[in-house]
Design a protein around this nucleic acid. Structure first.
Length: 553
RNA sequence: CGGGACGUAGCUCAGCCUGGUAGAGCGCCGCCUUUGGGAGGCGGAAGUCGCAGGUUCGAAUCCUGUCGUCCCGACCA
């Protein structure tokens, strides 16, 4: 196939768009791949849609390879299904009505619709089943960002598996995880498969596929030795051991004027900040105040705290703090606090400096169990330079893009939507479900984040919009066309730049667009019948006769 | 939803502080010249300065409101 640039809607831009910061955002807009319609709403222009279709095709092939069946469910979904599943009141759900007032939602994923169809599964003999589709998802995101990375409407490949039991689900889950790894490998991505936070809506277990990238929204923790990777929200790094001062038989009050941060406190007392504790009062939805306690050099992980409490929470207000402790933030501690204390595991042993619940005073020698009672849980956030829980190596933290997420849903949807089957023993059981999602648009953004240079995009071969970009310089149009035809005859997609433009402009656009191979036909070609073949990624260039071109070159 | 920034030509921006005939570069159209890394010349088209009020003889400029976009945070099946 040969496409002529002179006929193509390919609006490349010389300048970065003013509102872009992420590399993928800038380059996809500049390269004429996508355009923004409104916040979080994007049109794929011809080149962008070609890349999207390539990613879709890779996903389709790998899903089909594990036996998943492609189908297609509507976007518009009756509200009742969502009320039944309990997801109708999620703030991100777009809601609308038809002319007679019947209510609908625009799904943020299709669990309800697919579970609705799974009601037609009746016997264990039909199981397992796995179905998928590529369909538009709408989400009323509070803050779309970074071009294609977080949008309000996008195509998602979402798959749903239906098994008779947990063992079957484990198998389906594993199969999909392996297919996902193959998909991202074929897309040329560097990624990590990690345990993820299941979230309030999810089931029992979930895993993320994270691609390290400068513009990511997730935090990926990896070991320098490559034997540990986890999402920051659930990572269990091992912090260094504190240098404790000599132990005391009982806590001792000490005046610490102005020391309202851990930094100032450690400096004032001349101690290791890891030998202090930090108190953070939080309030549960029922109004009960709980004291979260972590080591002075640690930060509270809100996700872990959420799991430990089993409920949402918010920071306490200054008034609430004063009422409960008789002191202000900066001098708070667990000793004497009449309420629940959730302390990080790191505070289980040792004596720490803690706030005295008296402004300007602290206690040293505070020991859990002796001086206060606490429920222990892992509530500290893992941080850079923590030790790897597997090998003790150093942990590194990177920003990363969530490429895909696979969930064990269990019976989260089959029970409320009454999707059951008859098992071998004649008993009626709910289907055991998994769900598996990939956003091709986000995959594209991640590829660009990982594959670009100062001049533009450097597409991995399997997802490039065109395999070959032929630059026809003035006078060499005929030989350029021959070169294009040589590749096209081998089944490759060719972009032929036949525009009336100067060489520099064509080269710059070719670099920006990022096809793997660039062919240049110029006046030298008229003399020797050869063209320049340039590798976009390496910059290597060779001269070949037109007769030598094609897949082999 | 909290904090911040920005809305002027297709794009990137200046002008606003200190009110007085709307600007530049790139792009676009025509002609000429040039042609292996975003050339040059001449001529031309193109903006109700986001929108609505207000102040003023006069508002892109000052004030108020509102909408939009981006960034940080919260949120994120």
């Amino acid at each position: 196939m040969i496409v002529r640039a002179s006929q193509l809607f390919l609006p490349t831009l010389r300048d970065d768009p003013a509102d872009a910061e992420a590399a993928s955002h800038k380059l996809l807009v500049r390269g004429g791949y996508v355009r923004q319609v409104s916040a979080g709403l994007w049109t794929y222009l011809p080149l962008g849609w070609r890349v999207h279709q390539k990613v879709v095709q890779i996903i389709r092939e790998e899903m089909d390879a594990i036996g998943d069946q492609e189908m297609f469910a509507p976007v518009l979904t009756p509200a009742e299904l969502w009320e039944t599943s309990g997801r109708y009141d999620i703030p991100e759900v777009f809601k609308l009505e038809d002319r007679s007032g019947r209510r609908f939602v625009l799904p943020l994923s299709h669990e309800e619709a697919f579970t609705f169809h799974a009601r037609e599964l009746q016997s264990y003999k039909q199981l397992p089943q796995a179905w998928y589709h590529f369909q538009t998802k709408d989400r009323d995101e509070p803050r779309p960002k970074a071009g294609l990375l977080r949008v309000r409407e996008f195509v998602m490949k979402d798959a749903y598996s239906f098994d008779r039991d947990e063992a079957g689900l484990d198998e389906s889950f594993q199969k999909h995880g392996e297919a996902y790894a193959r998909i991202f490998e074929r897309c040329g991505l560097v990624f990590q498969r990690v345990q993820a936070e299941s979230g309030l809506m999810g089931g029992s277990e979930s895993e993320d596929f994270l691609a390290p990238a400068a513009a990511g929204e997730n935090m990926l923790v990896t070991c320098e030795n490559g034997d540990y990777a986890a999402d920051m929200d659930v990572a269990q790094g091992v912090p260094r051991a504190p240098e404790f001062p000599p132990s005391l038989d009982a806590p001792e009050e000490i005046e610490t004027p102005g020391a309202n941060t851990i930094e100032k406190l450690a400096e004032l007392l001349g101690i290791d900040d890891a030998a202090t504790s930090k108190a953070m009062p939080v309030v549960k939805p029922d109004g009960v105040l709980v004291l979260a306690l972590v080591r002075g050099d640690d930060r509270l992980s809100e996700d872990k705290m959420l799991s430990a409490l089993g409920t949402d929470f918010r920071p306490a207000t200054d008034d609430e703090i004063r009422a409960a402790f008789g002191a202000s933030g900066g001098s708070l501690g667990p000793v004497g606090f009449k309420g629940e204390v959730v302390a990080d595991e790191m505070l289980r042993t040792g004596q720490f400096v803690a706030g005295a619940n008296r402004d300007g005073w602290h206690l040293r020698g505070v020991e859990a169990g002796r001086d206060y009672e606490a429920r222990f849980a892992d509530i500290r956030a893992t941080k850079e330079d923590d030790a790897c829980p597997v090998c003790g190596g150093k942990l590194r933290v990177h920003t990363a893009i969530e490429l895909g997420h696979i969930f064990k849903l269990g019976t989260r949807y089959s029970v409320p939507l009454d999707a059951t089957f008859l098992d071998e023993d004649g008993s009626e059981k709910p289907l055991v479900m998994g769900s598996y999602g990939i956003g091709p648009g986000r995959v594209i953004a991640a590829i660009v984040e990982q594959h670009h240079d100062a001049n533009g995009i450097v597409w991995p071969a399997e997802v490039a919009p065109y395999d070959v970009h032929v630059v026809a310089l003035q006078g060499a149009e005929e030989i350029a066309l021959q070169a294009a035809e040589a590749y096209s005859a081998d089944g490759l997609a060719v972009l032929l730049d036949d525009r009336v433009a100067r060489p520099g402009e064509k080269f710059a656009d070719a670099d920006l667009i990022g096809a793997p191979i660039r062919i240049t036909a110029g006046k030298k070609s008229l003399e020797d019948g050869k063209v320049d073949v340039r590798n976009r990624a390496s910059g290597e260039e060779t001269r070949l006769a037109v007769s030598e071109l094609g897949k082999k070159a």
